[in-house]
C-alpha cells in the first residue's frame, strides 16, 4: 500500500467505520423487526400500534441518517444537519397541514 495515498491516520478508520455500518445494520434491523412484530402479533390496540410503529419509524429514519448517511452533531455536518432539520420542518407543515385541512373538510361534508 502506498503511504503517500493512504496516510496512516486513516487506516484504523476502516475498522471503526466498518463497526459503524454494522452497528447501523443491527439497529435498523432491530427496529424493523420490532415494528413488524408488533403489527404481526397484534399485541396492542390499533391506535397504540399506530403510535408505536410511527415512533419506531422516526427512530429508524434517524438511525439511517446517523449510521448510513453519516449525519451527526459534529461541527462539520452542521450545514447538512440544519438543512435536514429545515426540510423536516417544511415536511411537517406540509403533511400536517394537508391532513388537517382534508380531514376537516371531509368531516364537515358528512
Amino acid at each position: 500500500m502506498n503511504d503517500d495515498r493512504f496516510p496512516d491516520s486513516e487506516l484504523p478508520g476502516h475498522g471503526r467505520e466498518l463497526r459503524h455500518y454494522l452497528t447501523g445494520a443491527a439497529v435498523t434491523l432491530t427496529l424493523t423487526l420490532a415494528a413488524f412484530g408488533i403489527v404481526w402479533l397484534s399485541v396492542l390496540p390499533r391506535y397504540w400500534t399506530l403510535g408505536v410503529v410511527s415512533v419506531l419509524a422516526v427512530l429508524q429514519i434517524v438511525a439511517h441518517f446517523r449510521y448510513f448517511l453519516h449525519i451527526d452533531l459534529g461541527k462539520s455536518h452542521r450545514d447538512d444537519l440544519l438543512m435536514i432539520l429545515f426540510t423536516s420542518l417544511i415536511i411537517v407543515m406540509m403533511v400536517g397541514g394537508t391532513i388537517w385541512i382534508l380531514f376537516n373538510q371531509f368531516a364537515r361534508m358528512m
Binding site: 417544511i90 407543515m93 406540509m94 397541514g97 385541512i101 376537516n104 373538510q105 364537515r108 361534508m109
Partner: peptide
C-alpha cells in the same frame, strides 16, 4: 410563506377555526 396557503381557498368548506 409555507404556513398560509389555505387563504387561497377560505371558501372551500373547512371549519372556521382552521
Amino acid at each position: 410563506s409555507f404556513t398560509v396557503w389555505l387563504h387561497h381557498f377560505f371558501t372551500m368548506g373547512q371549519g372556521a377555526n382552521l
